[in-house]
Computed example of a mutant assay.
Amino acid sequence: MNIRLEHVSKQFSNHLAIHNLNLDIRDGEFICLLGPSGCGKSTTLMMLAGLYQPTKGNIFFEDQVVNHLEPKDRNIGMVFQSYALYPHLIVRDNIAFPLKQQKVPKKVRHERAEEAARLVRLENFLDRKPSQLSGGQQQRVAMARALVKEPDLLLLDEPMSNLDARLKIEMRDEIRQLQKKLNITTIMVTHDQEEAMAMADRIAILDQGKIQQFDTPERLFTQPKNLFVAKFLGNPPMNFLDGELFIENGDQLIRGEGFQLKLNKRLNLPTSTKVKLGIRPHEMKVVSEDEGSISAIVTNIEHLGREQLISAKIGKHSVRFFVENETKIKIGEPIHLHPKTDAIHIFSEEMGENLLV
């Protein structure tokens, strides 16, 4: 099912939670709403579910405006952060509960519950109660209960936030495979960027009720449109150096405290324009001193198993980058760094937009 939000806003008393939101979601897509707490992602999900009505704008399911349509009439499946299972019911009856509300005959709803249980590999747990299941199994029950109605739209509200790190990785693969197998349009709210990057076809990054960028995981990472997206996405985060543009011998360069860098792509901006240079940690390499290198002092070393994460100072700025375990570096040692010039980002200091996108 195609989903479209046109100029949607949501006001709570004096707080504007969502401001002029526009989204166009294709049939069968897996979309993540990603952002910090309070950015409006859960409010957007609640409007799609019919639990909130938009203050302005329209929500379309295909070509039908559903602003005032009750949740029960939207043919959606929803998985909550808490799973919201009924503790007194066995798994079979938990899964079948939405069908019971629809007055589906008992035999039919049990057959469909068993079919949904097979999809999530719970067919051997149908007679157990939720208290007899692990966290991952309870999540599967919640997923089966959402799928048993054969929904047109699946809404996931931080469904893996209660799982440990190892189980999260397993479950996100299972959910992604299941979603693709059933080809259900799916929208998931998460604050976990790694989760969003691993699962989504496209990600909408929100801040203060506005979409900052709606794009594929790859483009969000390699071509962030503004400083917020660049700072939010990436672990460890992007390095930033304050500088100014200037011309020397016909070349355009950025100069800041402790560094100078020649640009491959010339910007149509006046000399002395203040900018922020952005470099992801994996795009910085330790080199022997040369004309294009930047001097730095090592301040910390983190051993991560297969590599080391190095912190260093360039003038007043702190930066981080990776080196192989075999690289011999000591705290306090002066080093030379060479950023990959075709992978740098330059942001306007005034407006925050990426000048290279």
Rank of each mutant, 00 (worst) to 15 (best):
M1C: 01
I3W: 03
I3G: 04
L5F: 09
S9F: 04
A17I: 07
N20K: 05
L21T: 07
L23V: 06
G28E: 08
L34V: 03
G35N: 05
G38Q: 01
C39A: 12
M46A: 11
A49C: 01
Y52N: 11
T55R: 10
N58T: 13
I59A: 07
I59N: 09
D63H: 07
Q64C: 04
V65W: 06
H68K: 13
L69V: 15
P71A: 02
K72R: 13
R74W: 03
M78D: 07
Y83L: 01
P87Q: 04
L89W: 07
V91L: 09
K100L: 13
H110K: 15
A113N: 08
A116C: 02
A117N: 08
L122R: 08
N124R: 15
R128S: 02
K129Y: 14
K129M: 09
Q137T: 10
Q139G: 09
Q139S: 10
R145L: 09
A146Q: 00
V148W: 01
K149C: 08
K149V: 11
E150T: 12
P151R: 01
D152N: 12
L155A: 06
D157T: 02
D157I: 08
E158L: 02
P159S: 06
N162P: 10
L163Y: 05
A165E: 11
R166A: 12
K168M: 02
K168V: 14
M171I: 08
R176L: 12
Q177V: 12
Q177M: 07
T185Y: 03
I187R: 02
M188N: 00
V189H: 03
T190E: 07
T190C: 06
H191S: 09
D192G: 04
E194Y: 11
E195K: 01
A196H: 09
D201F: 05
I203N: 11
A204P: 05
L206H: 01
Q208K: 14
D215V: 03
E218A: 12
Q223N: 08
Q223H: 13
P224M: 11
P224W: 02
V229E: 06
G234L: 09
P236S: 00
L241F: 09
L241C: 02
D242F: 07
E244C: 13
N249A: 14
R255T: 12
E257P: 08
L263P: 02
R266G: 07
R266T: 15
N268I: 09
L269M: 02
T271I: 14
T271P: 04
T273Y: 03
T273G: 10
L277H: 04
L277G: 10
P281G: 10
H282N: 15
V286R: 12
I294G: 03
A296W: 05
N300G: 08
L304T: 01
L304F: 00
I310D: 06
S311F: 15
S311Q: 14
G315F: 00
H317G: 04
F321P: 00
E324F: 14
E326W: 13
I331M: 09
I331A: 10
I331C: 08
L337I: 11
H338Y: 14
H338P: 03
T341D: 09
H345W: 03
E350I: 13
M351E: 15
